[in-house]
Nucleic acid binder design. Structure first.
Length: 433
RNA sequence: GGGGGAAUACUCAAGCGGUCAACGAGGACAGACUGUAAAUCUGUUGGCUACGCCUUCGUAGGUUCGAAUCCUGCUUCCCCCA
């Protein structure tokens, strides 16, 4: 019956996209049987989600599109404890102000991706602090702890791997706290499935176990694989750290650039995971890409789709025009820069680091090394600047420059700017005031 | 409580009295080639007022003409015995 109403099978959908790592027996049948509520928890360790969490967001979107009901849980309580999964050392506890700030920020980001007002399968946002704030310790160890044995808890990888180096009771009990979340949602919200990253498997299973023993019910789990890049490096990291969803932390330009720079091999996987394009659409794109790889159709489609969905159409357009100007060669790029109106220019360079230099100083002339270091802090030491200049990696206004060059007012674009770059991708804008 | 060992740059890891700003590997950055890809090749990877100078080898002292290398105290970590 349910299948007839919604033509898309949730698990099938995730499967061809390569988004399933592990699944409990019966999970697929559960989704096929009826409209099912499922949840994913988000950790408030920072004040923004990053593109790693985007995978989980996509899962919830697919879930809702398939006609099921998504719960996005923010961990106001679990955030106070600290998940030991994948961590080799004890974590520092967040203070309450930071935690609340993070919770608010993350909640706002999540709201953007799901439909909270579409009838029976509207998304819901929950905070586990709500059911933990009045729970007292004795109740917890009597009503929850009694159902799960220490032996069972010790067998979890997240615990086992820490037995040598040590782990506080706080982190040890994390799986019970998260397990109780699942139990609570199962009991009060009829939530039968928990989804999440593969590192969450142990925690999730503690939940289903608790539901079985304490509630005599059945619950299910499905996890996504950890995303890896073809070259083995970490997904979602750049020189400057994490790629965040918040555009004040990662500018739209940089966000767009992250995706456009994906290798062919990675792009094939990413487009399945991070966009909602259909199988047919994706296969067509891949065909096109194979026929003319230098056009990078896949990367472009990927970057466009994600940037628009996470930021906005305007942000995407700005990022594209900035990229077009910045990645054109020599004279052409310079002409492009010169012909730009000030408004567009500012827009293009919004996400590019900048510094100001007084016009009088510029007119007097400044040695390139000083421009790179003392005046702008673009590079961190004179040695580094000299080295870079020797390596022929510094360009001023798209032209390679000599180590002993002196910049003057003549080098200003439209009398106002100088564009410096190190290598192909690192830009810096000097403004004259 | 007793005994033994270890701490070196972003990470791993040489060095055990001068030739050490410190071998090598990985990573990172850059150059060439390309497609703002991958692979490959090459260079760089403490600072400075720069063919010279200064500060670095857990920390504080000491021995010596001279120490990352030897000695002593301290800190941290590991192993063995109780």
């Amino acid at each position: 019956m349910f299948l007839k109403k919604y033509k898309m099978n949730f698990i099938e959908e995730l499967r061809w996209r390569g988004m399933i790592h592990d699944m409990m027996p019966g999970t697929e049948e559960q989704f096929a049987k009826e409209m099912t509520s499922a949840y994913i928890g988000f950790d408030p360790t920072g004040d923004s989600l990053h593109i790693g969490s985007l995978v989980q967001i996509m899962i919830l979107i697919h879930l809702q599109k398939a006609g099921h009901k998504p719960f996005a849980l923010v961990g106001g309580a679990t955030g106070m404890v600290g998940d030991p999964s994948g961590k080799s050392a004890e974590r520092n506890l967040l203070d309450n102000d930071t935690l609340n700030h993070n919770l608010n920020c993350i909640q706002k980001q999540l709201e953007r991706f799901l439909d909270f007002n579409c009838g029976t399968n509207s998304a819901e946002m929950v905070n586990n602090y709500d059911w933990f704030k009045n729970m007292n310790f004795l109740d917890f160890i009597r009503d929850v702890g009694k159902h799960i044995s220490i032996n069972y808890m010790l067998a979890k990888d997240s615990v086992k791997s820490r037995l040598e180096t040590g782990m506080s009771f706080t982190e040890f009990s994390y799986q019970l706290v998260q397990g109780y979340d699942f139990y609570w949602l199962w009991k009060n919200k009829n939530c039968k499935v928990q989804l999440g990253g593969s590192d969450q498997w142990g925690n999730i299973v503690t939940g289903t176990e608790l539901i079985r023993r304490k509630g005599g019910g059945e619950a299910f789990a499905c996890t996504t694989p950890l995303i890896k890049k073809a070259d083995g490096s970490k997904f979602g990291k750049t020189e400057g750290g994490n790629v965040w969803l918040d555009k004040t932390k990662t500018s739209s330009y940089k966000f767009y650039q992250y995706w456009i720079n994906a290798s062919d091999e990675d792009a094939v996987n990413y487009i399945r995971i991070f966009t909602l394009k259909t199988k047919t659409e994706i296969e067509a794109l891949e065909k096109e890409h194979t026929a003319a790889p230098h056009l990078r159709v896949l990367q472009k489609a990927l970057a466009e789709d994600i940037t628009i969905r996470v930021h906005s159409k305007e942000d995407f357009d700005a990022a594209v025009s900035a990229s077009e100007v910045l990645f054109k060669k020599g004279a052409e790029a310079l002409a492009g820069l010169k012909s730009m109106s000030e408004a567009i220019f500012n827009d293009v360079f919004e996400g590019v680091p900048q510094a100001e230099i007084a016009l009088i100083e510029m007119e007097a002339g400044i040695a390139i090394v000083d421009v790179l270091v003392a005046k702008t802090n673009f590079l961190s030491s004179n040695s580094e600047a000299r080295r870079a200049l020797k390596e022929n990696s510094i360009s001023v206004n798209k032209d390679k420059i000599e180590e002993d060059s002196i910049l003057t007012a003549k080098d200003l674009i439209n009398g106002k700017y100088i564009l410096i770059q190190k290598g192909k991708k690192n830009y810096f804008l000097v403004k004259v005031v």
